[in-house]
Amino acid sequence: MGNGTGIGRVRGLGSAKHGADHWWRQRVTAVGNLLLVTWFVFSLFRLPAHDHASVVKWMGSPLVAVPLILLTISVFWHLRLGLQVFMEDYVHEDGSKVAALLAINFYAIGGAALAIFSILKIAFGGVLA
């Protein structure tokens, strides 16, 4: 970034050119959440029992485990984007903002990883019902 000409002073200070991408991914995951979380609420509601054995047996089916993994990806991606906007709007000090954004990424990726691993472990029969 130079300080001579007008264009030199403003170069690099504009948008990061990622705004449309962020906006679009938020919408795509929103549609994913709409379908998958509605399915999830409905399925849990319809499950006859919620004890360990019933839930493990239920999650063993590919038609449950796969939507549940897709739900995890869609939801955690969406919440990562949403929390990012929240922090960008309310945290103005650069150091705290970077720390907050780092924490959000660790939370979203860590949470999704734990959830997906747990679903797979159950689905592949690694848990005694």
Binding site: H52, V55, V56, M59, T72, V75, F76, L79, G82, L83, F86, Y107, G111, L114, A115, F117, S118, I119, K121, I122, G126, V127
Partner: peptide, 20 residues
């Protein structure tokens, strides 16, 4: 959104990790 992201996210992960 923030409530779901934090409380919902943590509850969901706890539920799955406990089951596994």
């Amino acid at each position: 959104g923030v409530g779901l992201a934090i409380a919902g996210g943590l509850g969901f992960v706890w539920w799955l990790v406990a089951a596994a």
